[in-house]
């Protein structure tokens, strides 16, 4: 079940939880990920969907948060990573089509693996629980089809 062991996952998850908790205890903000894409769009698009108040209020901190996420992974790579710099072998067409679906779906659903998954379930939200069950189920179905068609990794 755990060919790479359990500790990297548990320690990684605890570190993530500490980061989210740190932000929440100091600011009351749920530091979640996928809204970044629509709040950032409010700098460029004038349509009402992107100009809503919650987006304008959060668009700045979401950029700082996202910069932190990227830099946090850079620091990991430069310090404790056993691998060093690393590149995926997932084909570009999968990154593009998958990215489009992820961007569209997370916005329609109002949450992703961190918003529904971590902050939502930790808030005991049944909406988030249903969302998480749904995206994990369809994630598994999708990955199984891809594998069945002989596409690797």
């Amino acid at each position: 079940m755990f060919p790479l062991g359990i500790w990297p996952y548990i320690i990684g998850g605890l570190i993530i939880g500490v980061g989210v908790s740190f932000v929440y205890i100091l600011t009351g903000i749920h530091s979640t990920q996928s809204s970044l894409f629509s709040t950032t769009m409010s700098y460029f698009s004038k349509i009402p969907y992107f100009q809503r108040k919650t987006y304008l209020d959060s668009r700045e901190w979401r950029l700082y948060f996202a910069a932190g996420v990227i830099l946090g992974a850079v620091i990991y790579t430069l310090t404790v990573s056993p691998d060093g710099w690393w590149t995926t072998s997932v084909q570009p067409w999968r990154l593009v089509i998958g990215g489009l679906l992820v961007g569209f779906g997370t916005r329609l659903s109002s949450g992703c693996t961190s918003g529904h998954g971590i902050s939502g379930i930790a808030s005991l939200s049944t909406t988030s629980l249903f969302a998480v069950i749904t995206f994990i189920l369809f994630g598994i179905i999708s990955a199984q089809i891809v594998t069945f068609l002989g596409v690797v990794p």
Binding site: G98, G105, T106, R107, F138, G139, S142, I145
Partner: peptide, 15 residues
């Protein structure tokens, strides 16, 4: 939305 997200997640491994 969760269904669409899941399909893209399983196709690309990205969230």
């Amino acid at each position: 939305g969760a269904i669409i997200f899941g399909l893209g997640w399983g196709l690309s491994g990205q969230c």
